[in-house]
């Protein structure tokens, strides 16, 4: 028996195990065993539903990306708070189309989510050919600058992490 047959989704198993322990808020041996049992059997039942996703090639870079996004979320909140409490007449909202170099649904989803969470931008729509991401910005003064920031700060690391 090969390992991949009994452990079809190792990352999902780990996630299920951690979520089970967090839900019960304990590391008692009984819950460790029950969590391990669930983490092994649920992926076995769900394995046929799996769709192929690109692999994470650079886990360390992914970790750094997560921390960078978390930092940006805090900055984004302060910026949005200042804009919201400031005068409404000064706001310059805008729609922007960002060309995508990424391929695959998972990386594009991650990029769209990151864009939604970070400074003053919400991703509104992806074009059908997966080449353009439409963004709504709360306050934009420099269109090319915004596109360049999205591409260099978030898209380039994602491209490296998934190697696509």
């Amino acid at each position: 028996m090969s390992l991949s047959k009994w452990l079809p989704m190792p990352l999902h198993s780990l996630l299920l195990f951690i979520v089970w322990l967090l839900l019960n808020n304990t590391v008692a041996p009984g819950h460790l065993v029950l969590g391990a049992f669930l983490a092994l059997t649920i992926p076995l039942l769900c394995a046929p539903l799996k769709t192929r996703q690109p692999k994470v090639l650079r886990p360390l870079l992914a970790l750094r990306y997560i921390f960078r996004v978390l930092g940006d979320i805090v900055v984004a909140n302060v910026e949005v708070a200042i804009l919201v409490l400031g005068p409404m007449r000064k706001l310059q909202p805008a729609f922007v189309a960002v060309p995508l170099d990424l391929s695959g649904d998972l990386p594009i989803t991650l990029l769209a989510s990151t864009v939604s969470l970070t400074p003053g931008t919400v991703s509104a729509e992806v074009s059908e050919d997966r080449k353009w991401l439409y963004i709504h910005a709360l306050h934009m003064t420099d269109e090319q600058g915004l596109i360049a920031t999205v591409k260099s700060r978030y898209e380039a690391p994602l491209k490296e992490i998934f190697g696509c």
């Binding site: 509104a124 992806v126 074009s127 050919d129 080449k131 353009w132 439409y134």
Partner: peptide, 8 residues
């Protein structure tokens, strides 16, 4: 264009 999911 965004509504129709077309390129810009």
């Amino acid at each position: 264009n965004a509504r129709e999911q077309l390129p810009p």
